[in-house]
Amino acid sequence: MSRRGGTAIWILVFMLAAELRGPAQSATPAESILRLPARAVWFVVAAGRPIGAAITVDNRIRVLSLPDGREQRAIDLPPGPADVFSISPDGRFIVFGDHKGNVHVWSSATGVTQCKLSLRRYPGVAVFSHDGGTLALAAQGDALQLVDVAKCTTHVSLAQTAGGVMAAAFSRDDRYIATADGDTAVRVYEAANARLVSENKDSVMSPLAVDFTADGRTVLALGGDKVVLFVDAATGRTSRRMDATQPPFAMQISPNGTLLATVFMKSEDMTQPDHITLTSLPAGTRQADWVPPVLPIGGGWTVHGHFIVATAAQNTLHLWTLN
């Protein structure tokens, strides 16, 4: 074999290898570092207001303005780790649930308790509607209940399914809620009355994340199948499949509906970070692909349309902006 021919073959091998890996990994995202009084263990972002909230190891929730990181308020927590932690998209409320099944909702503006609930076991899902008025809440393995946050009462419960609900998301108009269920189905319900609108059973493994497209017509779901299903919300039919590399920890569509953010789980070692990607919708082209240096502690879409990922070090919160 000539030297020239060998070089050509190696170039071909590299080209094929690059194709199999997919698009080259993005450059390191812009990083901002916020100083905190204690190490953060969980961070959430309000998609409709420039605030976020962190749980710190000194058992406090710290409400932070973004992007400057100025602490607006600290809320004392009961001791013990959190099982759920979320902020409403409008930024009004923060929910925290512990392993004893106690769930607290606070006003992020005042720190005053809005609601206290007690579940029969530890919570697995807590998601606010876009207007902050409803909290979709489920104990692990149990049916999802929709809680009127102002009245602190459950106004409707969804169907109980084997294995319970793994994740849930409201449509942008809050009329519908989609659930990723342990029995492998993706279901869409009317939020007002829990009427089942559609059901998709095309996943073989439990879906672990769901979100509605901005127009509410399609639900995206991803789980152990490692395929993003595009499900027609009205009929439950799969309209499209998009390959993924791993199951997700989280998946969220951007406020303007043009980007899909996916935080992947390294399924063979969930304590290690995996890829975080931004994919354009509906084209499906990769816009960003990054592996954080350590396991993220949260993140989300900001009011300015940026997807930020949080990692923590001692007394510092690192916010990485992917777009």
Binding site: G124, G141, M166, T184, M205
Partner: peptide
């Protein structure tokens, strides 16, 4: 006693 399903249930 109940215990949770976990993320890796697979039907069929």
């Amino acid at each position: 006693p109940w215990d949770e399903l976990g993320p890796f249930y697979k039907k069929n």
